[in-house]
Simulated scan of single mutants.
Amino acid sequence: MIGLGALVAITAGVTLVAGAATFGVARLRGRYDTVDTFWGLGFVIIAVVAFPFGSGPLSLRLVTAGLTAVWGVRLAVHLHLRNHGKPEDPRYARMVAAAGDRAAARMFVRVYLFQAVVLWFVSLPVQFAMYGGGLGLLGWIGVAVWLIGFAFETVGDDQLRRFKADPDSRGKVLDTGLWRYTRHPNYFGDACVWWGLYLLACSTWPGAATILSPVVMTFTLARGTGKPMLEKGMHLSRPGYAHYVERTSGFFPLPPKRLTPR
């Protein structure tokens, strides 16, 4: 058993090594979208590393590590299958083309190293929860929030997968199921997952102080590289997307607006 300060230093080192190793795999594969799979698995690695060192109750550590692992493995498998057999992600392809001869170094710093740092910072509630005082009321509320988020993310991803697999959906906009109430049920669910894990860390004041971690995750999804970048491409490829945006909530699930005919 080690102190919390030593743990966060260890996980920082492990995360950087894992990120560098993933970059090596990406170079061998010739595909920089390998980092997408690393995103989910990186959190699993941190949870597994942190679990045996924590001084908190075994029940809290098991719940925290288990929920993190279930979410991370599902996301990693989903993203790997989504990318498999398709060309390189256009985002990374554009970055490589713009960087020219310095593409490898720029991708390592701007994508892999940066993502490793963000991953470690977002995972702080998971690490601090390993030193928590117990589940308690906030912890069980956190589990409930996690379950809501995981359901939104999993069901939303599956609805989108089936929609894309239907040839009749070409050029159309998915506006049924969870997508009727929010344009990004998977991103909303992702944010809920991390607010739930944060609540598991709130049995101690140091754990509660990690609130910036779920804030950063939520901001990234809603205002950073998540929702805005995706919607920019959708406006160009889906003619009906603008009307969908007008009537559908951008992030939090809400009943669709009734628009008056023009």
Rank of each mutant, 00 (worst) to 15 (best):
V96C: 11
R162I: 12
S123T: 15
L60N: 01
A103M: 12
L62H: 02
G66Q: 09
G149K: 04
A97R: 15
D158C: 05
A116H: 06
D158G: 07
Q159H: 06
M130R: 00
G139C: 07
V63A: 09
M95E: 09
F108M: 11
V145R: 00
F108W: 12
P57F: 05
G156F: 02
Y131M: 06
N83W: 06
D166W: 07
W140M: 00
W71D: 01
S123Q: 08
V143Q: 06
P57E: 03
W71S: 02
H80V: 11
S123W: 05
L137Q: 06
G142W: 04
W140C: 05
G136C: 05
L75N: 05
T154V: 11
V109S: 12
G56K: 00
S59G: 07
G156N: 03
R61H: 02
V143E: 02
V118Y: 04
R91I: 11
L60P: 02
S123A: 15
F150Q: 13
W140E: 07
A105T: 15
Q159N: 09
H84R: 15
D157Q: 07
G142I: 04
A116P: 06
A129P: 01
G142Y: 04
D101Y: 12
S59E: 14
H84K: 15
N83D: 14
I148V: 15
L147I: 13
Y112R: 14
L62Q: 04
A151Q: 00
A104W: 09
Q127T: 10
F121R: 00
K164C: 08
G133N: 08
E153K: 07
G100H: 14
L67F: 04
P125I: 03
R94L: 13
I148D: 03
R110F: 09
G54A: 07
V96L: 11
A97Y: 10
D158M: 13
I148M: 11
E88Y: 11
F121Q: 05
D101F: 07
V70S: 08
R162H: 15
M107K: 14
I141E: 01
V122K: 04
M107C: 15
G72L: 12
V122R: 06
P167H: 13
V145A: 03
A69Y: 09
G66A: 09
L60S: 02
G100I: 10
A99G: 11
V143L: 05
N83K: 08
M107A: 14
G142E: 01
T68N: 03
V118N: 04
S59T: 12
A144V: 10
A144L: 10
A103H: 10
A104N: 15
K86T: 14
F152A: 00
A98L: 14
N83S: 14
G156C: 07
L138Q: 00
G134M: 06
L62K: 03
L124I: 07
L58G: 05
A144Q: 00
